[in-house]
């Protein structure tokens, strides 16, 4: 795992300030979505090797949720963006 994360709000910070929630590609289904869709959203997770987008929380910093795109094999971090911006883009 990366030792340093470049928070878009706080700059380069040690990873101990962050906590990881998981897959950032999940989109909460609408209430009318099928059982299967909700089941997949709540219970089913991929476990990919390689490039991966995750939700990280800058818990001991700005307390913003971030989307960290990284390679979970090489540990390279490609980008860190604010999750709200990403979420708005999806909803738009």
């Amino acid at each position: 795992m990366a030792s340093l994360i470049h928070c878009p709000h706080c700059g380069s910070r040690p990873k101990e300030e962050f906590s990881i929630r998981g897959d950032a590609s999940l989109v909460r289904p609408s209430p009318s979505a099928s059982d299967e869709e909700w089941h997949r959203y709540v219970h089913i997770r991929d476990n990919p090797k390689g490039r991966y987008k995750e939700h990280w929380h800058h818990a001991f910093g700005c307390r913003r949720w971030l989307v960290v795109e990284r390679d979970n094999f090489t540990h390279e971090v490609f980008s860190v963006t604010d999750a709200a911006e990403a979420a708005k883009a999806v909803q738009a």
Partner: peptide
């Protein structure tokens, strides 16, 4: 943390 996730990620 849960409320921040809901506000920032689910319903920005």
């Amino acid at each position: 943390t849960h409320m921040e996730y809901c506000a920032q990620v689910l319903w920005p």
